[in-house]
Design a protein around this nucleic acid. Sequence first.
DNA 1: ATGAAAGCGCTAACAG
DNA 2: CTGTTAGCGCTTTCAT
Lengths: 364, 364
Amino acid sequence: MNKLPPDPAPATRLDRSQRSGPTIRDVARAAGVSIGTVSKALNNAGTLKQETRERVAEAARALGFRPNDLAQALHRGQSFTVGLISNDSFGRFTMPILEGLESVLHDERIAVFMCNATDDPEREREHLEQLMGKRVDGLVFTARRADRRPSVGVNLGDLPTVFVFSQSDDPRSFCLLPDDEGGAYLGARHLVATGGRRIAHVTGPERFEAVRLRRDGYRRALAEAGLDWRDDFFLPGEWSEQWGRQAVDILFSSTAAAPDSILAGNDQIARGILDALRDRGLNVPGQVGVVGFDNWGVMVEAARPRLTSIDMNLSTLGQEAGRRILRMIGGEHFSGVERLPCTLMVRESCGAQAKTLFQEARST
Amino acid sequence: MNKLPPDPAPATRLDRSQRSGPTIRDVARAAGVSIGTVSKALNNAGTLKQETRERVAEAARALGFRPNDLAQALHRGQSFTVGLISNDSFGRFTMPILEGLESVLHDERIAVFMCNATDDPEREREHLEQLMGKRVDGLVFTARRADRRPSVGVNLGDLPTVFVFSQSDDPRSFCLLPDDEGGAYLGARHLVATGGRRIAHVTGPERFEAVRLRRDGYRRALAEAGLDWRDDFFLPGEWSEQWGRQAVDILFSSTAAAPDSILAGNDQIARGILDALRDRGLNVPGQVGVVGFDNWGVMVEAARPRLTSIDMNLSTLGQEAGRRILRMIGGEHFSGVERLPCTLMVRESCGAQAKTLFQEARST
DNA sequence: ATGAAAGCGCTAACAG
DNA sequence: CTGTTAGCGCTTTCAT
């Protein structure tokens, strides 16, 4: 029965005849109709007798026929795929975004190629070449932090592209970001509302745009509450627990005017702050209220007490990215930066008692 | 010149003529040769005059020609794509695996469709259908924890499939896992080597196979050191910091025979242990040595002191998965379970002083 | 050394 | 209502 393999061939090449299932031709034969009829029946197109549709459907099912998307793609000039280029090797930010993106695209039958560039421009270029070769219908860029990034030298033509949690230096491109300013405002306002008068802000490196925007939100909340900005209460540093602990040492070295509240630039910093306060015997939230940023499950839940934090709604961001790219594929154009609201998640480190009041607060 | 669009059509359909770049036909025209010649020239196939090759290459470059992989795939019956189905929505384990997998596959010009099933069988089935439609050349399954999983009812034919960090209940399938037993053995042996005599093991739920295997490795190290197994020193529970803290309360409630070393089932538990020991005023590693499992950067670095931990080498696991699937695509067959060694990463929570001796230790 | 032509599996326009 | 056919962009014999 089996003819012996006539050609050993390169091992990485498939023996096509083996793997690929029945074709539309086989279905046509089985149902006793023409190829065109099968196509119409299976796509609910054209005008066919109900009985024919059923006969074809039946034959297709019996054979286990599954249309070949590649052929379809070739014909339609649309591949039903988009590429996702990520520079967040750790996945902390990319995964929720991907989840949202994918859930939206999946409904339109389009699949996502995920590529990890890990900040290597050469690698990114290669990935882009590959994706272009695969004729993706769109492109999504993601990065670890929301800062500008130079476009690598690949001609994308007018391929629909969106930058999520990441920015392009090309003003014509479209960027989707969390509302950092509003998020920080929300956190600081919550600290005010729970009685804070001396509110410090311990955050990441000032070269991050997110750090500057969050600072602005913090400042706005202070102003609104009639509180003065104090240079010694704004501490940019690193995104680490280590820095959070160190910042507490700085803030509380002179007990004179130590803060009664701290807004952290991320949850890791917040956790460091909590640990250091604990070491000093200071009660949270009794003596000091603490609010984090990111609402990173593993951090906020493990913290003692559990951490109140700002959620950037990354999954929603991903969903919106999906919706936009679909519209762009449909011919619409977008450009500029759009920001989506953050949400305050209240837990015990600050204001859990005022839960009903603030839990739903959203920025913007 | 342009004829007006005769059909407004669904907005999500591409206007093909716009987007797709030059075809091989355009190159042929530009270079003044036939289509077949262009194909040969670009693929270094057949036998062509050197000058012709160059002329074609030049024309292709000038036009910015990029071969259409879809057409190629249709012809060859190989799509140069594989699907990755992940059930680890959090990404903690999937990302490193994906990174390794992708780096290997990328070199063979094959791209990865990433699909998130988040433990929803229906969703997984849909993804599989979609991937089959796209004629992926292979399939990789990943899960959050290395436990058996039922196969969803989709006929995969003889499509090359590998389960990484995850298992199938079909004995014919191929599974790639970390050597949990060996990893735990490594950790426990290290605790022995640094002077531990009363070594406890605080870990996750016993229904996880990984928990049982790690327990076995722990037991083997004890036996090898002539130490007795003690039921009260083996504490299965949850994968949380909370549980780590609680376990310390249990272990040290009677100061009588408290442990001098603790092997944790993961880094979160280990971190909880460290915090609780600290609360009790116990010095690590002076009074109690602690070893974690996972070597999760954000945990081990933030811990005080920094955490000695077992690395499962997930990226390597992903690479191996990539190599195997390539070989399977090439026609080879694999089945059964294979385990790759873990590595001990020594830090201050136990034995950093003995660094040179154990840092490179590998299981198996 | 190069060209011509037959598909890969499917869709859509046009006949019948 | 259904069949026929011309491609989609590329590879690969087989002629020339």
